Measured scan of single mutants.
Amino acid sequence: MTFKLIINGKTLKGETTTEAVDAATAEKVFKQYANDNGLDGEWTYDDATKTFTITE
């Protein structure tokens, strides 16, 4: 399955995708991506669209 991450950061904005077997796996990938890029914010997830959002 394809999951999307929408980034609404103070300095970084955009989106990225990952292929994962489930939402929990995708969340780990996206949280590592956010950590690697210095993002810290509030996370939301929409199961209907398989989309995570981080807002700083």
Rank of each mutant, 00 (worst) to 15 (best):
N37W: 15
L12I: 14
Y45S: 01
K13I: 11
A24K: 11
T11E: 08
G9M: 15
D47E: 14
L39K: 02
Y33D: 01
A20F: 04
Q32E: 09
Y45Q: 01
D40S: 14
Y33H: 04
I54F: 06
G9A: 07
F52R: 00
N37R: 15
D22F: 03
D22P: 01
G41S: 02
F3K: 00
Y45E: 01
D40H: 14
G38N: 12
D46Q: 04
I7D: 01
G9F: 15
T25I: 08
M1D: 13
G38R: 08
K28F: 10
N8E: 11
T25G: 13
M1F: 12
T55W: 10
T18Y: 11
A34L: 05
E42K: 13
A23Y: 12
D36N: 09
K50A: 06
N37K: 14
T17V: 10
E56S: 08
T55L: 05
V29P: 01
E56K: 04
T25W: 08
K10H: 11
A34W: 03
D22W: 03
K28T: 09
F52W: 06
E19N: 10
L39V: 12
T2M: 14
G14E: 08
M1S: 13
D46M: 04
A24C: 09
G9R: 05
T16V: 14
W43S: 01
A20Y: 02
Y45V: 02
I6Y: 05
K13W: 12
T2R: 12
K4W: 12
D36R: 09
F3P: 01
N8T: 08
D36V: 12
N35E: 14
K13H: 13
W43N: 00
L12Y: 13
G38F: 11
L12P: 05
D46F: 04
K13L: 08
W43A: 01
T25Y: 09
L12Q: 14
E42V: 14
A24T: 12
K10C: 13
T11M: 10
I7G: 02
E27G: 06
F30H: 01
K10E: 08
T18Q: 05
G9W: 07
E15H: 12
T18R: 05
K31M: 10
G38I: 04
K4M: 10
G41Y: 04
F3G: 01
K31D: 02
F52Q: 00
F30W: 02
N37T: 06
T44K: 09
F52V: 01
E27K: 09
W43R: 00
G41T: 02
L39A: 04
T53V: 09
A24W: 10
T55S: 08
W43T: 02
T11N: 12
A23D: 04
T44M: 08
F30Q: 00
A20W: 02
W43M: 08
A48R: 12
T55C: 05
I7K: 02
W43C: 03
Q32D: 08
G38C: 09
A24F: 15
A34P: 00
I54Q: 01
Y45A: 01
T55R: 05
G14W: 15
A34N: 02
V29T: 12
T49E: 06
G14T: 11
Q32S: 08
N35S: 13
T55Q: 06
F52T: 00
L39G: 02
E27P: 00
A26Q: 00
N37Y: 12
T44I: 08
K28A: 12
V21N: 10
Q32K: 15
T11S: 07
E42D: 12
E15V: 11
E56Y: 09
A48M: 13
G9V: 12
T25S: 14
D47R: 06
E15Q: 13
F3C: 01
G9K: 07
I54V: 12
Y33S: 02
T2Q: 13
T44F: 10
A24L: 12
Q32V: 07
G38S: 09
E19A: 08
F52I: 01
F30D: 00
A26R: 00
A48V: 14
K13Q: 12
Y33I: 07
T53N: 04
E56W: 10
Q32I: 10
K31W: 07
E15R: 05
E56L: 11
T11H: 15
E56R: 04
Q32L: 08
T16Q: 14
G14C: 11
A20S: 09
G41V: 03
Y45R: 02
E15P: 05
T55F: 08
G9P: 03
T49K: 07
F52H: 02
F3Q: 01
E42N: 10
A23L: 06
K13M: 10
D22A: 03
L5C: 05
K13C: 10
K50T: 04
F30P: 00
G14Q: 13
N8H: 11
D47F: 08
T16P: 03
L39E: 02
M1E: 11
A34S: 05
N8D: 10
T49A: 07
Y33R: 02
D36G: 05
W43D: 00
T11G: 11
T51D: 01
L5E: 01
V21S: 12
Q32N: 10
F52G: 00
T51P: 00
T53H: 06
T51R: 03
G41R: 01
T49I: 08
I7C: 05
K50F: 10
E19P: 05
D22Q: 03
D46C: 07
K4D: 03
F3H: 03
Y33P: 00
T18D: 02
F52D: 00
T18G: 03
D47M: 09
Y45P: 00
A26Y: 00
V29G: 04
K28V: 11
T53G: 03
I7E: 02
G14A: 11
L12C: 10
F3V: 02
T55Y: 08
M1W: 14
T11F: 13
N37P: 01
T16S: 07
I6M: 06
K31V: 07
E42C: 08
V21C: 07
F3R: 01
A48P: 09
L12A: 12
T18W: 06
V29Q: 09
A26V: 02
T17W: 15
T53D: 03
